[in-house]
């Protein structure tokens, strides 16, 4: 097989992996399907795999050499979704959001419940020019009464939208954060000689308050922690001012609204990207939080940072990332984990 052909095969495999990850439902608290899907992908690549009491999937690779550290990588595997609060007599379901869901992107959307039941989202009549609120919306699963409705109060659904490959850019309803899950899986598979004991954590319940990574960090007790997550961009028409753009490389987080990345970790990431000639951009995110915060605050404190994949239209059914940024993120993560780390 030619090198070129091999690359195409690898690319196809990666795309298939992304498709699998983004199309598997897994709203916060209901990560069983996505956890099983990830486990399938990492079996054999890790030295030890466990699921903790919260449901975090934790895979260890390597052991701590004299010049090594215990490093925790956290990519949350949960996504935003909906939970049913009431089913009316005609079989329409009312719901509350799990994580940050905008009513604007719900109307006409499709959902899939954890048992496979599908449905669509409808809206009550609105006053002219009024914006919808979540209270005005309902899920219609195609039944006509409460009695024959397969959905009950407390049932959870995720959004459903097929993966879209636009070539340079990739689109899905859950690039936040499955693209990072794929980055972590790829890094776990690729990582060879490392002086570090690396814990790849696929964390739960990030979207509802960074909960899974907090217990995972306590359990792992790392020397250094890195979240891998998506971040916003400022490269679309008339959007919030922000320097991050698609196709300019993975972003090194300086801060978000949940924590300030440890400056020593930021410096380590910059130096690594420079040395490996990997493009990168600096990220100052004014709204939003990541697992980096919960790692930082674990036990007696952990130097923590975040590797971000720039993503447009976060928390909509069409989150968009750059294929190049994604590939560079994998390279950067592998580089970060392959060498001795000296924090300032």
């Amino acid at each position: 097989m030619s090198i070129e052909a091999k690359k195409i095969e690898q690319d196809d495999a990666l795309l298939a992996l992304i498709k699998k990850m983004v199309e598997t439902p897994g709203p916060s608290g209901q990560e069983q399907l996505i956890r099983a899907a990830i486990l399938e992908e990492i079996q054999g690549s890790a030295d030890e795999i466990r699921t903790d009491a919260m449901g975090n999937l934790i895979a260890r690779k390597g052991s701590k050499q004299p010049n090594g550290l215990r490093i925790m990588i956290s990519a949350h595997m949960d996504e935003i979704g909906l939970m049913v609060t009431h089913v009316d007599e005609n079989g329409f379901s009312r719901f509350i959001p799990i994580g940050g869901v905008s009513p604007l992107t719900c109307i006409g959307g499709r959902v899939i419940f954890m048992n496979g039941q599908r449905g669509v989202i409808g809206c009550e009549r609105l006053e002219p020019n009024a914006l919808p609120t979540l209270e005005k919306l309902f899920i219609d699963v195609g039944t006509t009464s409460r009695e024959d409705c397969p959905v009950k109060v407390g049932d959870v659904c995720g959004f459903e939208r097929p993966f879209l490959d636009l070539g340079k850019h990739l689109v899905a309803k859950s690039m936040d954060n499955r693209i990072s899950v794929v980055v972590a899986i790829a890094a776990l598979r690729t990582l060879q000689a490392s002086p570090h004991e690396v814990y790849f954590v696929f964390s739960v319940q990030e979207e509802v308050g960074l909960r899974g990574s907090a217990t995972a960090a306590y359990g792992v007790d790392p020397d250094v922690g890195l979240a891998v997550d998506v971040t916003r961009t400022g490269d679309t028409p008339r959007t919030t001012k922000m320097e991050v753009a698609l196709d300019k490389g993975p972003a090194i987080k300086v801060r978000d609204s949940s924590f300030i990345a440890d400056p020593r970790v930021v410096d380590w990431m910059i130096a690594t990207a420079k040395a490996a000639d990997i493009p990168y951009q600096m990220e100052v995110l004014e709204a939003g939080g990541t697992d980096g915060r919960s790692i930082q605050l674990a036990r007696a404190g952990v130097p923590a940072g975040c590797l971000s994949i720039p993503c447009r239209y976060i928390h909509t059914p069409s989150e968009m990332v750059s294929r190049a940024d994604f590939e560079d993120a994998i390279r950067l993560l592998v580089e970060l984990l392959s060498r001795e780390v000296k924090l300032g």
């Binding site: 801060r255 924590f259 605050l297 036990r299 007696a300 404190g301």
Partner: peptide, 13 residues
């Protein structure tokens, strides 16, 4: 001033 990172962690140690 940001997230009480010091106050959450020093007492642990």
């Amino acid at each position: 001033e940001t997230n009480f990172a010091g106050a959450f962690t020093s007492p642990f140690a």
